[in-house]
Nucleic acid binder design. Structure first.
Lengths: 186, 186
DNA sequence: GGCTTAAAGTACCAAATGGTAACAAAATGA
DNA sequence: TCATTTTGTTACCATTTGGTACTTTAAGCC
């Protein structure tokens, strides 16, 4: 039994629809393995989804952190974020992390803990990014860095979630650009 | 068997958590009725949730349409929307309609149709509101009315959804105000 | 070969899901 | 008063859920 392969299949399935709509039975079937094999490898459904989330974080989410830590300045970083959220083909069916976060109460304890950990890390990354922009004088006062970070994070989550529901990418880009224009107002 | 009472109980249950997390069994239990009684009254789970949504629309959603059709001008209407989304105690656990819309694929055909109907009506109301504002010269060009309407609707949905996840109302108000400030920019 | 040990698979479990057939109780009509 | 229709309940159905005890297969190793 190839653990990596199973994780990939599970990740794709969770990602394409929603973790809550993919049963353990379905995954074993798609992976062509027996249920006890899967339980021996991951312990429980919670263990599996947690492992999937770990994989997703290092394979996909890392890219978002890279953009934030790129040190490219306010405008160019925001543009990169807009490109990623509204244009990247990998986000065509939404973001697995945001799907999990939206269905928090349906997750097992381990996966939930990981979701909150990632959420906190993302918030911290947004804060660091905006703080740097403020220090560089690129971003006007009047809004706390924390509030701005939360706002930025939620707008990106909204944009990606809309992609999952089949909204026109051009429209999503337009709306996200509008939402983030508050950071670059004259 | 009091149909209205059952609808109220179901509405509250669906609303407080999520339609997908409340089973027919749970509702019959809460309402103190037997399952066949419920099925005779509503036909199916889909019939029940559709009836609940109807009730919710006329009891709760109507208020949002009232605000939009109030004809109070851009600024005051936006303020009323912000108050409603981030302050109204009834939205403390989120909006049943948005919860259903977020979990579209889990709904039965009748309920789904009703959700899309309401969604279209809301979009039309936002369009009419913004068109009136533009005609009155209260809102600058540069963004199509349709795009603005979608943006406005999604921002309000986002704010109310955040309330369901326990976010601080003051913070939500701050973010929503920021998001909607694009409509009243000098 | 023969023996041991780890991996995999078969076949099950109890609980919960949406939904219904069959039957008893009560209201309604003539 | 008697027959009929409505209302409600009990007890079930098949299917799916997450999870596991038990048996079979395969790989090492001497």
């Amino acid at each position: 039994m190839d653990t990596e392969k199973v994780l990939d299949i599970a990740m794709t399935a969770y990602w394409q629809t929603d973790p809550a709509d993919v049963s353990v039975n379905a995954i074993t079937q798609m992976a062509g393995i027996s249920k006890p094999s899967l339980y021996r490898a991951f312990g429980s459904e919670d263990g599996l989804s947690r492992a999937v989330l770990d994989r997703y974080a290092e394979q996909v989410l890392s890219e978002m952190f890279l953009i934030l830590h790129g040190g490219k300045g306010l405008r160019r970083t925001l543009d990169a974020l807009i490109d990623f959220a509204s244009g990247d083909p990998r986000m065509e069916t939404g973001c697995l992390f945001y799907k999990m976060r939206a269905g928090k109460h349906r997750l097992g304890p381990d996966t939930l803990a990981r979701v909150e950990e990632i959420d906190a890390a993302a918030q911290a990354a947004y804060v660091a990014f905006l703080q740097a922009a403020r220090n560089a004088g690129e971003w006007p006062d009047g809004l706390s860095v924390e509030a701005g970070a939360k706002y930025l994070g939620e707008q990106i989550a909204l944009a990606i979630t809309q992609r999952a529901s089949g909204e026109d990418p051009a429209r999503i880009r337009e709306m996200l650009t509008l939402a983030l224009s508050v950071f670059t107002r004259p």
